Amino acid sequence: MRKVRKAVIPAAGLGTRFLPATKALAKEMLPIVDKPTIQFIVEEARRSGIEDIVIVDGKSKRSIEDHFDSNPELEANLAAKHKDEMLRQVQETTGMNLYFIRQPYPRGLGDAVLTAKAFIGDEPFVVMLGDDMTDSKVPLTKQLIDRYNETGASTLAVMRVPHKDTAKYGVINPSEETAPGLYNVTNFVEKPQPDEAPSDLAIIGRYLFTPEIFEALENTPIGLGNELQLTDAIDNLNKTQRVFAHEYTGKRFDVGNKFGWLKTNIEYGLNHPETKDQLRAYIKELNTRLTKDEEKAKSVKSK
């Protein structure tokens, strides 16, 4: 069984949910406190033992490539001013085995993965979506790799979500739990309405695939939203070989929408050494102020 050493990070989306900020800035470069979201994904890949990473980007995504490139002028300036910690932070984004492939048109997640076929070849690999940040002792990507080492089969991460939210996700129809937190899957459904959803186990942004997923993608018709849906291809793959679902129970942050991104910034800000004390004090102050405003509004209304 071949070692899992490659990752695909799709980053070619238009980022319309963050307009106008993403008119000229890659959504993946929006910061969580002081670090771009895509850097968290790359760091998770490295902590999981991934050696080579390909980022599938598109037009207006040059800032991603620049972020992971060296900046000799900035580095020389920081070195001359003995700003050693800043220099370390700048340099830690370089020296990775990062590659970039352009997706000419935003034709869906399935098409973005298929674009990386030549890079992956005949090896197993992981797909990591930038909209999902995870926090657990063992990185979620490493959890999937460990499952693959046990089963030799494609495995994707799922997490229980409120039933009313199933239309936001791909959802699995589990047939049996073969090991604690590991499910055989009857079929996969892309964004089902709550009354049609087969379970509350939703696919989140981490996948481990055998290379046969590419044949499944090539034989999958265009689906929801006039895009090549990865969930549809997974369902097709599941008809010829087993595809497992691994239930993730750690923390997950959805940074693909404004409110989720704001919540993630607050959570990370409360743990960041430069912001945690001030932010905690500000939240307490804000809560007191809001409580007083609510009491004042109730008092006025009762008169």
Rank of each mutant, 00 (worst) to 15 (best):
A80I: 06
N77G: 08
A76W: 05
V90R: 13
E285S: 08
N265V: 09
D235H: 08
L237I: 07
D132L: 05
I101Q: 13
E190V: 05
E212T: 06
T115Q: 13
I283Y: 12
K303W: 01
V90E: 14
V255E: 03
K23T: 11
D111I: 02
R242I: 09
D52V: 01
G256C: 11
F259T: 13
I41H: 08
G181V: 05
E247S: 04
T249E: 12
E73C: 09
A202P: 02
G256V: 09
A112T: 03
N287I: 09
Q89A: 15
A7H: 12
G58R: 05
S299Q: 09
K251R: 15
F119N: 11
G15C: 08
I172M: 06
I213N: 05
T37E: 09
D132A: 08
K81A: 15
R102W: 07
N226S: 12
K276P: 00
R88P: 02
G225V: 10
D235W: 05
F125A: 00
F68G: 04
K258V: 10
I222N: 02
T288G: 11
S154G: 14
L286G: 02
A153K: 13
F209Y: 04
R2Q: 13
D200W: 00
T220G: 10
E176P: 01
L270H: 06
L144V: 06
K137N: 11
D146A: 08
H67K: 07
Y169T: 01
A7C: 04
S63N: 15
Y148F: 07
H82I: 08
P198L: 05
Y148H: 06
R280S: 15
Y268E: 04
R252F: 14
Q39V: 07
A80F: 11
G269S: 00
V158W: 01
E85H: 04
I120R: 05
N257T: 08
R160W: 06
V171C: 01
V8W: 02
L114F: 14
T231D: 13
L290P: 06
A216Y: 04
H246I: 00
N287T: 15
K263M: 13
I32R: 10
V171F: 03
A79P: 00
F214E: 15
F253T: 00
L270F: 03
P198A: 03
G130S: 10
E177N: 01
G170Q: 06
E215V: 11
V243C: 13
V300L: 11
D122A: 08
E73I: 12
T22N: 15
R17W: 12
E196H: 15
A197F: 00
D66K: 13
E150H: 04
G15S: 10
A281P: 01
G256W: 09
P31K: 12
G130I: 02
L182Q: 13
V161E: 12
V158Q: 05
P104R: 02
G49K: 00
M86R: 12
D232A: 08
M96K: 15
I213L: 06
E274Y: 01
L30Y: 10
L156Q: 01
S63Y: 13
Y207M: 07
V138S: 00
I222P: 00
K239E: 02
R252I: 15
L208M: 06
I172R: 05
T155K: 07
A167P: 00
Y169W: 03
N187Y: 10
N287Q: 14
K137M: 08
R17A: 12
S70D: 11
P211V: 00
R62H: 09
I203T: 08
V161G: 01
D146P: 04
